[in-house]
Every structure is written in C-alpha cells, then in structure tokens.
C-alpha cells in the first residue's frame, strides 16, 4: 500500500481557524484505525505547531505523510526564523505578545510540547527565511 500524503495551507489571517488542519488529520487517522495514543500525540503536536505558525510566522504549509509504521509531519513557514532554539525549547520561554496570551497561548510551551508528543523532532531554521519543523510519531 502506498503512503497517504495530506497537504494543508495554514492561514494566519484568521486565528479562529487555527487548528482546522490538525482537526482534519485527527479525524482521518481515527477513521483509518490508527491506535488512539498515536492519534492523540499527532493531534497535539501538530496543533501546537499550527498555532505557532499562526502566532509567529504568518502561516505556512503542512505536509503529513502516513506510513504503516509512522506519521511524519512537516511544518514549513516563511516566518522570521527562531533566533535561539535552546531558549525556545525551554518550557515557559516565549516571545509571544500579550494579545496572544489573551487568546490562551504564548505560555512558552509550544516547542517543548511538540517535542514531548513526538517520537522524533527536527528544527531547521534560518533567520529571515523561515522555519521547517519535522516531527515523527511512531504507530
């Protein structure tokens, strides 16, 4: 069986729509019979990433590849890049504005959470060019 590849465009214009892609992936994985623990890990990791793309990067593109053994999420944006990855990985460290906090995000848990819920995570970032986060969750 060939791998299933899903592609999404994350629109940063409308915060209320953030999470639509993650919601769609969660629904598809459930219907495909992927074990609930893996579905939840993918949903949370991807949702955090999607929120990050909206808050920090003016949107971007998400590709999800579903193989028999793992789910690979590639989140690519053309945002400002991450200046200090070590700091960004620290729980509680955030550059988010008060506006974002008022929406319930920006607690500095995004990237640490993405790492926690994925079995493998890689960040490629170039200042002024963009960031690509690749996350893998084993089934």
């Amino acid at each position: 069986m060939s791998n299933l590849v899903l592609k999404y465009t994350v629109d940063a214009e409308d915060f209320t729509r953030a999470g639509e892609a993650s919601s769609d992936v969660k629904g598809k994985l459930k219907r495909m019979g992927v074990p609930p623990d893996a579905v939840r890990k993918v949903a949370i990791a991807m949702y955090e990433g999607e929120i990050n793309m909206v808050i920090h990067a003016d949107g971007g593109e998400i590709t999800v590849e579903i193989t028999p053994s793992q789910i690979i999420m590639i989140l690519a944006d053309k945002g400002p890049g991450i200046k200090d990855i070590d700091k960004a990985m620290q729980a509680g460290w955030s550059t988010a504005s008060e506006n974002v906090r008022a929406l319930g995000f920006g607690a500095g848990m995004g990237l640490p959470n993405m790492k926690k819920y994925s079995d493998e995570m890689k960040i490629d970032t170039v200042i002024g060019v963009g960031t690509t986060v690749t996350m893998k969750v084993n089934i």
Partner: peptide
C-alpha cells in the same frame, strides 16, 4: 491557558475555563 492544558493534561475529560474563543 490552553498552552498549559496541552502541556500538562493527560486523561482529563472535563475542562473548566473562562476563555471563550474557538481554540
């Protein structure tokens, strides 16, 4: 803070919140 719910919550089935947006 939805960030904290996503970070620390494991198997809870009820969420009490004063935040009102779609997120």
């Amino acid at each position: 803070m939805m960030s904290d719910v996503l970070a620390y919550v494991k198997d809870q089935s009820v969420l009490l919140t004063g935040l009102c947006n779609p997120q």
